[in-house]
């Protein structure tokens, strides 16, 4: 009474699943970029800012790291409407994931600020750089270079995390997998295909990130 794998019921749905993978990638990229900008801004405040602003940033980080992403998105999706703010599923999930990633990326980049070369900062200060210029031209490349591995890991985490969007009516890869699954009941076939798509997606992303890192920041990553 073993289970026979029959992929023929599922193969017709592969293009539909790939469309979901595209949405997954899009959601991961948007939330990573916004989260990274939030994180850079926050880490700048933690490093250069006045005490009350630092406290506010620490409050934000503490809140978002210590509550589940699911709860955060649930709040944005289902609680804000009672206050008159009705966001589309995609927007709600993108905002939730960005705010969540922002907290983690604040923590990651704070470490980057702490490992800054004092000498480069002195040179920038002495040459009259403003704080935003210093962050953008000196701190950011340093962070991108020294923190490239954790930053790209965070991106891969974002790719995986997008699966939560299925709960909030976003038809990304996991959501579409559930849809195909309920149609065909071929769970093992559907989810094995989806697993392969995720693996290919993340490997492709890390390859792209390695190439990008080498090109932008001279991070000498070994590529396959």
């Amino acid at each position: 009474m073993g289970y026979d794998l029959i992929y023929s019921q599922v193969t017709g749905h592969v293009p539909y699943l790939l469309g979901g993978a595209l949405l997954t990638l899009q959601l991961a990229t948007i939330s990573f970029l916004v989260g990274w900008a939030i994180g850079l801004f926050n880490a700048s405040i933690l490093h250069f800012g006045p005490h009350p602003a630092r406290l506010a940033v620490q409050g934000y980080v503490t809140f978002f790291i210590n509550t589940p992403l699911l709860v955060q998105i649930f709040f944005i999706f289902f609680v804000l409407p009672d206050a008159g703010i009705l966001l589309s599923p995609y927007t709600a999930v993108a905002i939730g994931m960005s705010l969540n990633a922002g907290a983690y990326l604040t923590e990651i980049q704070r470490a980057g600020f702490q490992s800054l070369r004092r000498e480069e900062m002195d040179a920038a200060t002495a040459m009259g750089f403003s704080v935003p210029q210093m962050v953008w031209y000196v701190v950011m490349p340093h962070i991108a270079k020294t923190l490239y591995p954790p930053l790209s890991n965070q991106f891969i985490i974002q790719v995986m995390t997008t699966s939560i969007a299925a709960i909030f009516a976003v038809e990304e890869l996991t959501g579409r997998a559930y849809n195909v699954n309920s149609l065909t009941f071929r769970s093992m076939e559907v989810f094995s295909i989806v697993a392969v798509i995720y693996v290919v997606l993340t490997l492709a992303c890390s390859l792209a990130l390695a190439v990008l890192g080498r090109w932008l920041f001279r991070v000498k990553a070994r590529i396959v």
Partner: peptide, 10 residues
């Protein structure tokens, strides 16, 4: 000009 050059490494 500093002792340690302090060039921007990137």
């Amino acid at each position: 000009v500093f002792q340690q050059y302090n060039l921007f490494q990137n």
